[in-house]
């Protein structure tokens, strides 16, 4: 039998230009396939192995660490323009295994799996002893704050009625007693000021998403709601691309079932198309 040499991988430096190019393609792929939460940006390349691939090409096997940004996945802002969530805000890390095929100098992702986890309470306390930690998204105070904020937004809104897509972040602030929330919304076919039964409203076929930040404060038995929403430009109706790999993002934060199905963002626009903030 002819001697078949054992297949061995090529070792590259994690800071090598080739490795960084592969990692950037991986992060862009991950962000374009995220259905919930926030876009992530590359923080560190942990490991890289490059395998020869028959009949031609190479397979890059990468382990990368990412950090959550402040841009929601429905926000069309390119991730390069998004701010990284700071430690004092309770940062969230992503840990990803990715495989990419390089043929003719072009990378394509064949597999991606990520786990995300918030920074530890101890680490947050080290940099900011009084900063609020992330709260479970299904906490009753969080859900109430989102409902109150969305109602306040719709009450001030002359256009479409916006419905909740997902609660993406929440913090319970001890003093003054308040709840900080962030959530994604979508325009419906109802007019905000005419809505009597929100359950009858349907999301527009040409999706129009928004992202809201709100603080609901208890003040002498009264509730004060401050909400700011940014509404993004409409996303054209396009057939959903079939996955060419596997992306699985698991979060340790308590997940919340979105009341309406959130479609993944259509092909990400090249330029930010932000309209607003509205209220």
């Amino acid at each position: 039998a002819a001697h078949v040499p054992e297949m061995t991988y090529r070792q590259l430096s994690c800071d090598d230009l080739e490795t960084q190019q592969a990692a950037q393609v991986a992060v862009d792929y991950i962000n374009s396939h995220l259905l919930h939460g926030y876009k992530h940006t590359l923080n560190q390349i942990d490991q890289v192995k490059v395998w020869p691939r028959r009949p031609f090409g190479e397979v890059f096997e990468l382990e990368i660490d990412t950090l959550e940004t402040t841009c929601h996945v429905l926000d069309p802002t390119p991730v390069a323009n998004c701010t990284v969530r700071q430690l004092a805000e309770h940062a969230v890390e992503g840990d990803c295994d990715v495989r990419l095929l390089r043929q003719d100098g072009q990378f394509s992702v064949t597999f991606a799996k990520c786990d995300s986890s918030p920074d530890s309470a101890e680490d947050v306390r080290k940099v900011c002893p009084d900063c609020p930690l992330l709260a479970p998204l299904n906490d009753s105070r969080v859900v109430h704050a989102v409902e109150a904020a969305l109602a306040a937004f719709n009450a001030q809104n002359n256009g479409s009625y916006f419905q909740l897509v997902e609660i993406s972040r929440a913090q319970l602030v001890p003093l003054p007693v308040s709840t900080r929330v962030e959530f994604a919304v979508a325009a419906t076919d109802c007019v905000a000021i005419q809505v009597t039964d929100a359950a009858k409203c349907n999301m527009l076929p040409e999706k129009q998403y928004g992202f809201c930040k709100a603080t609901v404060t208890e003040n002498l038995g009264q509730e004060e709601v401050a909400v700011t929403c940014t509404v993004f430009q409409r996303q054209p109706v396009v057939p959903q691309p079939q996955p060419d790999g596997l992306v699985s993002i698991a979060s340790t934060s308590a997940p919340v079932d979105p009341p309406a199905s959130a479609s993944p963002p259509a092909s990400p626009p090249a330029a930010p198309m932000v309209v607003g903030p509205m209220v």
Partner: peptide
């Protein structure tokens, strides 16, 4: 360190993990 005669000098291994761009969580 002084390499002894006949000893193969250790190859410089690629550095991993790479640089941290923001901060370590």
């Amino acid at each position: 360190p002084v390499a002894k005669p006949g000893m193969v000098a250790a190859a410089v291994l690629p550095s991993c993990p790479g640089r941290i761009r923001y901060f370590k969580v």
